[in-house]
């Protein structure tokens, strides 16, 4: 099954890969999470011992596995775009399915980690470290869930009516998904390792 793909000149400032609106969102999200991380570091300097003890209560093994899961999912997403550009819809669908499954695994592991924290009575208002932990990982998880909805929607359309899925639409979904990667790549060391 093959479809024709229209080429876009990404060198044009108004047409970055994924679209200008999505890239504005990406830049704003990176700034927002960056400010969150700066706040975490600021309070970490005020209460270094509290932050160190709190950090030790996080499960860095799950954090590491989740990082790898998200990276592998990102790899499948990158291949999804490559295959769609080559017009191979069956392979596009296959890679997109694995991307979604990777995302679901990330959500599952995150939920397990949350349950672990809640049963250990490590809640939002315990201290500033856990306030940042719950808010930042929670907002990130919300982004992953939105990404999963977008990708599932694309996958469904690829299955039912492949010609309706434009390369630009798929690239936008991919850019959103990789944005979740980018944010997590800074959240993971900031929360799980450095304090």
């Amino acid at each position: 099954m093959e479809v024709k793909v229209q080429a876009i000149d990404h060198r044009d400032i108004f047409y970055p890969p994924g679209g200008i609106l999505l890239w504005l969102i990406i830049i704003l999200e990176l700034i927002t999470f960056g400010l969150g991380i700066a706040g975490l570091v600021y309070y970490g300097r005020i209460e270094p011992e509290v932050f160190h003890q709190s950090r030790l209560q996080l499960n860095s093994f799950i954090g590491t596995v989740n990082t790898m899961v998200l990276l592998i999912s990102g790899y499948f997403m990158a291949n999804t775009i490559v295959k769609h550009k080559s017009g191979d819809i069956i392979a596009t669908r296959k890679y997109l399915k694995w991307t979604i499954l990777g995302g679901m695994l990330f959500v599952g592991l995150k939920c397990y980690e949350y349950v672990e924290k809640l049963t250990g009575n490590l809640e939002l208002e315990d201290n500033m470290f856990f306030t940042f932990y719950w808010l930042m990982t929670g907002f990130h998880l919300a982004h992953v869930l939105v990404g999963l909805v977008i990708l599932s929607f694309s996958w469904w359309h690829l299955k039912t009516n492949p010609s309706s899925v434009q390369g630009a639409d798929l690239e936008s979904g991919a850019a959103f998904w990789h944005m979740c990667d980018l944010i997590w790549l800074f959240l993971f060391p900031s929360l799980y390792l450095i304090f």
Binding site: L71, A78, E171, A175, H178, L182, L185
Partner: peptide
């Protein structure tokens, strides 16, 4: 973390193909 960030952005997100501003 910065190296990973750049690898994902430039390789997986195709940022290398984008305009200098991005």
């Amino acid at each position: 973390a910065a190296v990973k960030f750049l690898l994902v952005a430039f390789a997986f997100m195709d940022l290398r193909k984008a305009h200098f501003f991005w």
